[in-house]
């Protein structure tokens, strides 16, 4: 296979809820092993776009997608693609921590097990937790309920759970918005660590976070039909220092609406 540098490419990707177009004409190339941030005002379709990347929108009955989403030159929306496999390859961390109401150990083991993991489970659990910088805090209580963890720990557990199924890409939808500043910082550090091996796409409302943590930034905005679109996509540095679009500049400097 030709080794291309992009984890995901979109080709005129549009996402519709019924007759309403929520996201329109997105063309993006997401580089491998980089952190790409998606920013933009509320309701502009960030979550919608992110969820389109691993076909989570399949569960919204009214939602359908046009255009192409390419991963290794395969269109993930073509008829012969299995959405379950897609989600296995592109993991997701949600805005609110959502561990399973099971033990910490089971939270990680379950995803591996249903995906046919045949290696040593204990090892996988430990490695995943270490990768999520959670191991030291929970190693003595692996059999306890995940619900007993703090919000920040829960979110790292969700990241560990995603790592355990060894995806290529990790999607994160405002993963730190429900967390306090310290936990937020830990998640950001973790992202830097993870990007050595994974491609990360993160939606965030926090400009500092985007500026601090990401390599590339996509700026989204709605047009007059309320359809969101990527108005600018560039290296984070460029977006935050010399934005090409006036609206981006307004937004990142906080002068927006």
């Amino acid at each position: 296979m030709e080794n291309n540098n992009y984890a995901i490419e979109t080709n005129d990707l549009s996402i519709h809820y019924g007759s309403f177009t929520a996201v329109k004409g997105v063309n993006m190339k997401v580089e491998r092993q980089k952190i790409t941030a998606i920013i933009g005002p509320s309701g502009c379709g960030k979550s919608t776009l992110l969820r389109a990347f691993n076909r989570m929108n399949d569960f919204v009955p009214s939602c359908h997608v046009t255009g192409e989403l390419l991963l290794d030159n395969q269109n993930l929306y073509s008829k012969d693609i299995d959405p379950v496999e897609v989600r296995r390859k592109i993991g997701m961390v949600f805005q609110k921590p959502n561990p399973f109401p099971k033990s910490i150990y089971e939270n990680i083991a379950w995803g591996a097990r249903i995906n046919g993991f045949k290696g040593k489970m204990d090892e996988l659990v430990e490695q995943s937790l270490r990768s999520a910088a959670l191991w030291d805090e929970v190693k003595d209580k692996l059999q306890q309920s995940a619900y007993a963890l703090s919000g920040g720990q829960q979110q790292r557990l969700c990241i560990a759970r995603t790592i355990a199924i060894q995806p290529e890409i990790i999607l994160m939808d405002e993963p730190a918005s429900a967390l306090d500043p310290i936990s937020t910082l830990r998640i950001e550090e973790l992202m830097q660590e993870l990007k050595k091996n994974y491609t990360i796409i993160i939606v965030t409302h926090n400009m500092q976070q985007a500026a601090r943590a990401s390599d590339y930034t996509a700026m989204m905005m709605i047009d007059d039909q309320r359809a969101g679109g990527v108005i600018e996509f560039d290296a984070t540095k460029t977006i935050f220092t010399r934005p090409g679009d006036k609206r981006t500049e307004d937004y990142v400097t906080g002068r927006f609406g």
Partner: peptide
């Protein structure tokens, strides 16, 4: 198993089946 310290490398298939995005029956 390999002697790895912290991270699990993606796209390696230790214990997992190979990726194949094609629809399965």
């Amino acid at each position: 198993m390999k002697e790895e310290t912290l991270n699990i490398k993606p796209m390696e298939t230790r214990g997992f089946r190979q990726f194949n995005l094609k629809k399965k029956l």
